[in-house]
Computed example of a mutant assay.
Amino acid sequence: MMNCLGCYTEVRVGYCVKCRDRLFDKAKVPATLSFDAPKADNLRAFQEHSKRLSISGVQLKYSVRREENELVLSDTNGMYILKPVSASKQLLYADDAPENEHLTMQIARQVYGIQAAESGLIYFKDQQPAYITRRFDVQPDGNKLMQEDFAQLTNRTKDTHGIAYKYDGTYEEIGLLIKRYVAAAIPALERFFQLVIFNYVFSNGDAHLKNFSLMRMETGEYQLTPAYDLMCSVIHTPHEADTALDLYEGDMNSDHYLTHGYYGRADFMELANRLGIVSSRALRMIEQFETKGNLTKSLIEKSFLSAETKALYRANMLEKLKRLNA
Protein backbone atom coordinates (compact mmCIF):
# COMPACT_ATOMS: atom_id res chain seq x y z
CA MET A 1 0.00 0.00 0.00
CA MET A 2 1.04 3.60 -0.58
CA ASN A 3 -0.34 7.12 -0.34
CA CYS A 4 -2.29 8.42 -3.33
CA LEU A 5 -0.18 10.68 -5.55
CA GLY A 6 -3.09 13.11 -5.53
CA CYS A 7 -4.67 13.38 -2.07
CA TYR A 8 -2.49 11.07 0.11
CA THR A 9 -5.25 8.57 0.96
CA GLU A 10 -4.06 4.98 1.09
CA VAL A 11 -4.14 3.13 -2.24
CA ARG A 12 -2.57 0.06 -3.78
CA VAL A 13 -0.88 2.02 -6.54
CA GLY A 14 -0.96 5.46 -8.19
CA TYR A 15 -4.13 7.50 -7.72
CA CYS A 16 -7.35 6.92 -5.83
CA VAL A 17 -10.66 6.85 -7.73
CA LYS A 18 -11.55 10.45 -6.78
CA CYS A 19 -8.21 11.85 -7.89
CA ARG A 20 -8.32 9.86 -11.12
CA ASP A 21 -11.74 11.40 -11.76
CA ARG A 22 -10.69 14.97 -10.97
CA LEU A 23 -7.32 14.85 -12.73
CA PHE A 24 -7.91 12.50 -15.63
CA ASP A 25 -11.69 12.24 -16.14
CA LYS A 26 -11.60 8.70 -14.69
CA ALA A 27 -9.00 7.49 -17.22
CA LYS A 28 -6.56 4.96 -15.76
CA VAL A 29 -3.48 7.08 -16.31
CA PRO A 30 -0.44 5.32 -14.78
CA ALA A 31 1.70 6.99 -12.14
CA THR A 32 4.71 6.69 -14.45
CA LEU A 33 5.04 8.56 -17.75
CA SER A 34 6.21 6.77 -20.89
CA PHE A 35 9.22 9.10 -21.34
CA ASP A 36 12.25 10.12 -19.31
CA ALA A 37 12.79 13.42 -17.51
CA PRO A 38 14.42 16.23 -19.53
CA LYS A 39 18.15 15.80 -19.95
CA ALA A 40 20.84 16.42 -22.56
CA ASP A 41 19.75 13.79 -25.11
CA ASN A 42 16.03 14.70 -25.14
CA LEU A 43 16.00 18.34 -24.09
CA ARG A 44 15.15 19.64 -27.57
CA ALA A 45 11.82 17.76 -27.53
CA PHE A 46 10.98 19.22 -24.13
CA GLN A 47 11.95 22.76 -25.13
CA GLU A 48 9.36 22.67 -27.89
CA HIS A 49 6.71 22.40 -25.18
CA SER A 50 8.15 24.75 -22.56
CA LYS A 51 5.95 27.33 -20.81
CA ARG A 52 6.56 30.22 -18.45
CA LEU A 53 9.20 30.18 -15.74
CA SER A 54 8.76 30.57 -11.98
CA ILE A 55 10.81 30.61 -8.76
CA SER A 56 13.14 33.36 -9.91
CA GLY A 57 12.91 32.11 -13.49
CA VAL A 58 14.53 28.71 -13.06
CA GLN A 59 11.62 26.24 -12.85
CA LEU A 60 10.50 25.06 -16.30
CA LYS A 61 6.94 24.12 -17.24
CA TYR A 62 5.87 21.85 -20.09
CA SER A 63 2.56 21.40 -21.87
CA VAL A 64 0.97 17.93 -21.77
CA ARG A 65 -2.24 16.42 -23.13
CA ARG A 66 -3.98 13.10 -22.52
CA GLU A 67 -4.43 10.56 -25.30
CA GLU A 68 -6.63 7.77 -23.94
CA ASN A 69 -4.72 6.58 -20.84
CA GLU A 70 -1.40 8.15 -21.77
CA LEU A 71 0.04 11.62 -21.19
CA VAL A 72 2.16 13.06 -24.01
CA LEU A 73 4.08 16.28 -24.53
CA SER A 74 2.09 18.69 -26.64
CA ASP A 75 2.42 22.15 -28.13
CA THR A 76 -1.32 22.22 -29.01
CA ASN A 77 -4.43 21.26 -27.06
CA GLY A 78 -2.50 21.06 -23.81
CA MET A 79 -4.65 19.99 -20.86
CA TYR A 80 -1.95 19.87 -18.20
CA ILE A 81 1.20 21.65 -17.08
CA LEU A 82 4.12 19.44 -16.09
CA LYS A 83 6.94 20.71 -13.86
CA PRO A 84 9.98 18.46 -13.52
CA VAL A 85 12.86 18.82 -11.07
CA SER A 86 14.88 21.89 -12.03
CA ALA A 87 18.45 21.33 -13.18
CA SER A 88 19.36 24.80 -11.94
CA LYS A 89 21.94 25.05 -9.19
CA GLN A 90 20.17 28.19 -7.93
CA LEU A 91 17.61 26.13 -5.99
CA LEU A 92 18.26 24.30 -2.74
CA TYR A 93 16.52 20.93 -2.30
CA ALA A 94 15.56 21.02 -6.00
CA ASP A 95 14.55 17.33 -6.00
CA ASP A 96 11.78 18.17 -3.53
CA ALA A 97 10.33 21.08 -5.52
CA PRO A 98 7.62 19.05 -7.34
CA GLU A 99 6.33 17.52 -4.11
CA ASN A 100 6.65 20.84 -2.27
CA GLU A 101 4.19 22.39 -4.72
CA HIS A 102 1.90 19.36 -4.67
CA LEU A 103 1.81 19.27 -0.86
CA THR A 104 1.14 23.01 -0.57
CA MET A 105 -1.71 22.79 -3.07
CA GLN A 106 -3.22 19.87 -1.15
CA ILE A 107 -2.96 21.71 2.18
CA ALA A 108 -4.73 24.69 0.61
CA ARG A 109 -7.54 22.50 -0.70
CA GLN A 110 -7.93 19.88 2.02
CA VAL A 111 -7.20 21.86 5.17
CA TYR A 112 -8.31 25.40 4.36
CA GLY A 113 -10.97 24.79 1.71
CA ILE A 114 -9.21 27.04 -0.80
CA GLN A 115 -10.36 26.51 -4.37
CA ALA A 116 -7.17 25.30 -6.04
CA ALA A 117 -6.21 23.82 -9.39
CA GLU A 118 -6.33 20.02 -9.59
CA SER A 119 -2.85 18.62 -9.11
CA GLY A 120 -0.78 15.59 -8.28
CA LEU A 121 2.65 14.04 -8.34
CA ILE A 122 3.76 11.86 -11.25
CA TYR A 123 7.01 10.11 -12.20
CA PHE A 124 9.01 10.06 -15.40
CA LYS A 125 10.08 6.72 -16.84
CA ASP A 126 13.47 7.12 -15.14
CA GLN A 127 11.61 7.65 -11.82
CA GLN A 128 12.34 11.33 -11.41
CA PRO A 129 9.31 13.08 -9.86
CA ALA A 130 7.29 15.87 -11.46
CA TYR A 131 4.39 18.06 -10.42
CA ILE A 132 1.35 17.91 -12.70
CA THR A 133 -1.62 20.26 -12.66
CA ARG A 134 -4.75 20.33 -14.78
CA ARG A 135 -5.43 23.57 -16.63
CA PHE A 136 -8.61 25.17 -15.30
CA ASP A 137 -8.94 27.48 -18.32
CA VAL A 138 -9.47 24.55 -20.72
CA GLN A 139 -13.08 23.39 -20.97
CA PRO A 140 -14.12 19.73 -21.51
CA ASP A 141 -14.84 20.52 -25.17
CA GLY A 142 -11.32 21.91 -25.62
CA ASN A 143 -12.35 25.56 -25.71
CA LYS A 144 -10.30 27.96 -23.60
CA LEU A 145 -11.64 30.61 -21.26
CA MET A 146 -9.91 33.98 -21.37
CA GLN A 147 -7.56 34.37 -18.42
CA GLU A 148 -5.73 37.55 -17.45
CA ASP A 149 -3.24 37.80 -14.61
CA PHE A 150 -2.78 40.96 -12.58
CA ALA A 151 0.40 41.98 -14.35
CA GLN A 152 -1.71 42.18 -17.50
CA LEU A 153 -4.60 43.88 -15.70
CA THR A 154 -2.28 46.54 -14.27
CA ASN A 155 -0.47 46.97 -17.63
CA ARG A 156 2.89 45.99 -16.18
CA THR A 157 5.48 44.53 -18.55
CA LYS A 158 9.28 44.38 -18.73
CA ASP A 159 9.18 47.35 -21.08
CA THR A 160 7.07 49.53 -18.77
CA HIS A 161 8.27 48.46 -15.30
CA GLY A 162 11.59 46.67 -15.78
CA ILE A 163 12.71 43.08 -15.38
CA ALA A 164 11.09 42.73 -11.91
CA TYR A 165 7.72 44.06 -13.13
CA LYS A 166 5.70 41.19 -11.66
CA TYR A 167 6.94 42.10 -8.17
CA ASP A 168 6.03 45.79 -8.59
CA GLY A 169 2.67 46.18 -6.88
CA THR A 170 0.68 45.50 -3.72
CA TYR A 171 -1.95 42.99 -2.66
CA GLU A 172 -4.26 45.93 -1.93
CA GLU A 173 -3.95 46.93 -5.60
CA ILE A 174 -5.02 43.43 -6.69
CA GLY A 175 -7.98 43.59 -4.30
CA LEU A 176 -9.15 46.91 -5.69
CA LEU A 177 -9.09 45.46 -9.21
CA ILE A 178 -11.12 42.48 -8.03
CA LYS A 179 -13.70 45.01 -6.78
CA ARG A 180 -13.73 46.65 -10.18
CA TYR A 181 -14.00 43.57 -12.39
CA VAL A 182 -15.77 40.84 -10.38
CA ALA A 183 -19.53 41.19 -9.97
CA ALA A 184 -19.60 38.99 -6.84
CA ALA A 185 -16.77 41.03 -5.36
CA ILE A 186 -17.21 40.33 -1.63
CA PRO A 187 -16.74 36.52 -1.72
CA ALA A 188 -13.94 36.95 -4.28
CA LEU A 189 -12.16 39.44 -2.00
CA GLU A 190 -12.48 37.07 0.95
CA ARG A 191 -11.02 34.23 -1.12
CA PHE A 192 -8.17 36.48 -2.18
CA PHE A 193 -7.52 37.68 1.39
CA GLN A 194 -7.43 34.09 2.66
CA LEU A 195 -4.94 33.22 -0.07
CA VAL A 196 -2.67 36.15 0.84
CA ILE A 197 -2.55 34.91 4.44
CA PHE A 198 -2.00 31.33 3.26
CA ASN A 199 0.99 32.38 1.16
CA TYR A 200 2.44 34.18 4.17
CA VAL A 201 1.93 31.27 6.57
CA PHE A 202 3.38 28.76 4.11
CA SER A 203 6.30 30.98 3.11
CA ASN A 204 5.42 31.43 -0.54
CA GLY A 205 7.57 34.43 -1.34
CA ASP A 206 6.85 34.10 -5.06
CA ALA A 207 3.12 35.02 -5.01
CA HIS A 208 3.56 37.90 -7.44
CA LEU A 209 1.20 39.70 -9.85
CA LYS A 210 1.21 36.86 -12.39
CA ASN A 211 0.24 34.28 -9.75
CA PHE A 212 -3.26 35.71 -9.35
CA SER A 213 -5.69 35.86 -12.26
CA LEU A 214 -9.22 36.58 -13.35
CA MET A 215 -11.07 34.35 -15.80
CA ARG A 216 -13.90 35.40 -18.09
CA MET A 217 -16.63 32.80 -17.89
CA GLU A 218 -18.95 31.82 -20.74
CA THR A 219 -21.59 34.14 -19.19
CA GLY A 220 -19.23 37.06 -19.73
CA GLU A 221 -18.65 37.59 -16.01
CA TYR A 222 -15.19 37.65 -14.45
CA GLN A 223 -14.24 35.32 -11.60
CA LEU A 224 -11.10 34.87 -9.53
CA THR A 225 -9.37 31.76 -10.84
CA PRO A 226 -8.55 28.78 -8.64
CA ALA A 227 -5.26 29.15 -6.77
CA TYR A 228 -2.11 27.95 -8.53
CA ASP A 229 1.67 27.97 -8.09
CA LEU A 230 1.45 27.54 -4.31
CA MET A 231 4.56 26.28 -2.58
CA CYS A 232 6.86 26.87 0.38
CA SER A 233 9.37 28.68 -1.84
CA VAL A 234 11.65 29.72 1.03
CA ILE A 235 12.90 26.11 1.22
CA HIS A 236 14.46 26.53 -2.23
CA THR A 237 15.36 30.24 -2.07
CA PRO A 238 15.97 30.90 1.65
CA HIS A 239 17.00 34.56 1.34
CA GLU A 240 13.81 35.72 -0.34
CA ALA A 241 11.41 38.30 1.13
CA ASP A 242 8.45 37.10 3.20
CA THR A 243 6.02 38.23 0.50
CA ALA A 244 6.45 38.86 -3.22
CA LEU A 245 4.39 42.06 -2.99
CA ASP A 246 3.83 44.58 -0.20
CA LEU A 247 0.48 44.18 1.57
CA TYR A 248 -0.34 47.83 0.92
CA GLU A 249 1.52 51.04 0.23
CA GLY A 250 3.53 52.06 3.28
CA ASP A 251 2.98 48.78 5.17
CA MET A 252 6.55 48.72 6.45
CA ASN A 253 5.83 51.92 8.35
CA SER A 254 3.08 50.27 10.40
CA ASP A 255 3.54 50.19 14.17
CA HIS A 256 3.83 46.40 14.13
CA TYR A 257 6.35 46.24 11.31
CA LEU A 258 8.50 49.02 12.76
CA THR A 259 8.52 47.20 16.12
CA HIS A 260 9.09 43.62 14.94
CA GLY A 261 10.49 43.83 11.42
CA TYR A 262 7.85 41.53 9.96
CA TYR A 263 4.10 41.43 9.29
CA GLY A 264 1.71 40.46 12.07
CA ARG A 265 -2.02 40.18 12.62
CA ALA A 266 -2.51 43.96 12.74
CA ASP A 267 -1.03 44.35 9.26
CA PHE A 268 -3.36 41.76 7.74
CA MET A 269 -6.34 43.28 9.53
CA GLU A 270 -5.38 46.64 8.01
CA LEU A 271 -5.31 45.03 4.56
CA ALA A 272 -8.77 43.54 5.20
CA ASN A 273 -10.06 46.95 6.24
CA ARG A 274 -8.70 48.55 3.07
CA LEU A 275 -10.41 45.86 0.97
CA GLY A 276 -13.72 46.36 2.74
CA ILE A 277 -13.79 42.92 4.38
CA VAL A 278 -15.83 42.80 7.59
CA SER A 279 -13.43 42.69 10.57
CA SER A 280 -15.09 39.68 12.22
CA ARG A 281 -14.82 37.70 8.95
CA ALA A 282 -11.18 38.67 8.48
CA LEU A 283 -10.36 37.70 12.06
CA ARG A 284 -11.95 34.26 11.63
CA MET A 285 -9.93 33.67 8.48
CA ILE A 286 -6.74 34.53 10.33
CA GLU A 287 -7.60 32.41 13.35
CA GLN A 288 -8.33 29.31 11.25
CA PHE A 289 -4.60 29.06 10.58
CA GLU A 290 -3.99 28.66 14.31
CA THR A 291 -6.64 25.97 14.79
CA LYS A 292 -5.79 23.68 11.87
CA GLY A 293 -2.12 23.10 12.57
CA ASN A 294 -2.52 19.42 13.41
CA LEU A 295 -4.33 18.67 10.13
CA THR A 296 -1.54 20.40 8.26
CA LYS A 297 1.17 18.47 10.13
CA SER A 298 -0.62 15.21 9.23
CA LEU A 299 -0.50 16.01 5.50
CA ILE A 300 3.15 17.05 5.74
CA GLU A 301 3.93 13.68 7.31
CA LYS A 302 2.01 11.80 4.58
CA SER A 303 3.74 13.72 1.82
CA PHE A 304 6.60 12.50 -0.36
CA LEU A 305 9.05 15.14 0.83
CA SER A 306 12.39 14.01 2.22
CA ALA A 307 12.62 13.90 6.02
CA GLU A 308 14.89 16.97 6.04
CA THR A 309 12.53 19.00 3.88
CA LYS A 310 9.51 17.95 5.95
CA ALA A 311 11.26 19.37 9.01
CA LEU A 312 12.01 22.64 7.19
CA TYR A 313 8.43 22.87 5.95
CA ARG A 314 7.03 22.44 9.49
CA ALA A 315 9.54 24.85 11.01
CA ASN A 316 8.76 27.62 8.52
CA MET A 317 5.02 27.17 9.05
CA LEU A 318 5.34 27.33 12.84
CA GLU A 319 7.51 30.44 12.67
CA LYS A 320 4.96 32.24 10.47
CA LEU A 321 2.09 31.20 12.74
CA LYS A 322 3.99 32.67 15.65
CA ARG A 323 4.39 35.93 13.71
CA LEU A 324 0.72 35.95 12.73
CA ASN A 325 -0.25 35.76 16.40
CA ALA A 326 2.08 38.60 17.41
Rank of each mutant, 00 (worst) to 15 (best):
Y131L: 03
K18A: 08
S34G: 05
R180T: 03
G162A: 04
Q139L: 15
F46H: 09
E308W: 04
F35E: 09
R66V: 00
S74H: 14
K61Q: 12
S56A: 13
H208E: 10
T154M: 06
G113P: 06
K320R: 15
L195C: 03
D149T: 01
M269E: 12
V182D: 10
N253V: 00
A87Q: 14
A116W: 09
Q194T: 10
A27K: 15
N199S: 06
A227R: 12
L271K: 07
E48C: 08
I163V: 05
N155M: 07
M105F: 09
P129V: 02
A27F: 10
D41K: 15
R156K: 15
L321E: 04
D21Q: 15
D149H: 10
A282G: 06
S213H: 05
L189C: 03
K125I: 00
D246K: 13
Y181L: 08
S303V: 01
L214P: 08
D251Q: 04
N3T: 08
Y181N: 07
Y228K: 11
L92S: 13
F136M: 04
Y15P: 07
S88M: 11
E172G: 02
M217C: 02
V196C: 08
D251R: 01
D206K: 14
M269H: 04
G120M: 03
T291Q: 14
G264H: 00
L91A: 11
I178T: 04
L318F: 10
Y222D: 08
V13L: 10
D149C: 03
T160I: 01
L33W: 11
M146I: 05
I114A: 02
R180L: 03
D41I: 01
H208N: 15
M79N: 11
S203N: 14
K51L: 11
A183M: 05
Q128R: 15
A45Y: 12
L295T: 01
F198R: 08
L5Q: 10
M2Y: 09
S50W: 06
Q127E: 14
F193Y: 15
A307E: 15
E190L: 06
E173G: 06
C16I: 02
L283G: 01
Q106I: 00
A315N: 14
H260E: 05
V111W: 07
